Simulated scan of single mutants.
Amino acid sequence: MTAAGDGPWLDDAAGRLVRPFTVSNGRTRPTVALDLMSQLMATGATPLGYVGPEHAQVLDLCHGPVPVAEIAAYLRLPAAVTKVLLADLVDCGALTAKPPAFFHNPTDRSLLEAVLDGLRRQL
């Protein structure tokens, strides 16, 4: 039995019916350098040739800027597989990729403290 909205790719009892590496045709390295925080957005261009169901889901999801990590979570795929799918769409011009906003030091103590302070205010 499939969960609502998941289509034939997921089964409640068995889990994922298609192994993640088959979704990317066995490829493990994306052709475009993507960070988990890279922002992707659909360009409106239609990819030529066959696009799998995951590619179509990504295009539906990326009407606004969406980070790689969020797309991977939505697709329920490992980040490495998701990056390969995203690189396919970037290569054909259907997506644009923007690197994360911080280039210098993502583990900068002041940045991490500001994030922690913001989270504390939200709780």
Results as ranks from 00 to 15, higher is better:
residue 58 V to A: 06
residue 58 V to L: 07
residue 58 V to R: 02
residue 58 V to K: 08
residue 58 V to I: 15
residue 58 V to H: 02
residue 59 L to G: 02
residue 59 L to C: 09
residue 60 D to T: 12
residue 60 D to G: 07
residue 60 D to V: 05
residue 60 D to L: 10
residue 60 D to M: 10
residue 61 L to M: 13
residue 61 L to I: 12
residue 61 L to K: 13
residue 61 L to A: 11
residue 62 C to D: 13
residue 62 C to V: 01
residue 62 C to G: 14
residue 62 C to W: 01
residue 63 H to S: 14
residue 63 H to K: 14
residue 63 H to Y: 12
residue 63 H to E: 13
residue 64 G to A: 13
residue 64 G to S: 13
residue 65 P to F: 02
residue 66 V to T: 14
residue 66 V to K: 14
residue 66 V to Y: 01
residue 66 V to D: 12
residue 67 P to T: 04
residue 67 P to I: 00
residue 67 P to M: 05
residue 67 P to G: 06
residue 68 V to C: 00
residue 68 V to G: 00
residue 68 V to D: 02
residue 69 A to I: 09
residue 70 E to Y: 08
residue 70 E to A: 15
residue 70 E to P: 08
residue 71 I to Q: 01
residue 72 A to H: 00
residue 72 A to S: 05
residue 72 A to Y: 09
residue 72 A to F: 01
residue 73 A to L: 05
residue 73 A to V: 09
residue 73 A to P: 03
residue 74 Y to A: 15
residue 74 Y to K: 15
residue 74 Y to W: 01
residue 74 Y to I: 08
residue 74 Y to C: 11
residue 74 Y to H: 15
residue 74 Y to E: 15
residue 75 L to T: 13
residue 75 L to N: 12
residue 76 R to W: 04
residue 76 R to V: 00
residue 76 R to D: 12
residue 76 R to E: 11
residue 77 L to N: 09
residue 77 L to V: 10
residue 77 L to G: 04
residue 77 L to W: 11
residue 77 L to M: 10
residue 78 P to Y: 08
residue 78 P to M: 04
residue 78 P to S: 00
residue 78 P to H: 03
residue 78 P to N: 07
residue 78 P to R: 07
residue 79 A to W: 03
residue 79 A to G: 04
residue 79 A to Q: 07
residue 79 A to H: 09
residue 79 A to T: 15
residue 79 A to P: 06
residue 79 A to N: 05
residue 80 A to S: 15
residue 80 A to M: 10
residue 80 A to F: 01
residue 80 A to D: 15
residue 80 A to Q: 14
residue 80 A to E: 15
residue 80 A to L: 01
residue 81 V to G: 08
residue 81 V to S: 08
residue 81 V to L: 08
residue 81 V to P: 03
residue 81 V to W: 02
residue 82 T to D: 04
residue 82 T to H: 02
residue 82 T to C: 04
residue 82 T to E: 02
residue 82 T to W: 04
residue 83 K to T: 10
residue 83 K to D: 05
residue 83 K to C: 08
residue 83 K to Y: 07
residue 83 K to F: 05
residue 84 V to M: 04
residue 84 V to F: 03
residue 84 V to S: 07
residue 84 V to G: 05
residue 85 L to R: 07
residue 85 L to P: 07
residue 85 L to I: 13
residue 85 L to H: 07
residue 85 L to D: 03
residue 86 L to N: 06
residue 86 L to P: 09
residue 86 L to Y: 04
residue 87 A to H: 00
residue 87 A to E: 12
residue 87 A to G: 09
residue 88 D to V: 00
residue 88 D to T: 05
residue 88 D to G: 01
residue 89 L to R: 10
residue 89 L to E: 09
residue 89 L to P: 12
residue 89 L to A: 11
residue 90 V to T: 02
residue 90 V to S: 01
residue 91 D to T: 14
residue 91 D to P: 06
residue 91 D to Y: 01
residue 91 D to C: 10
residue 92 C to V: 14
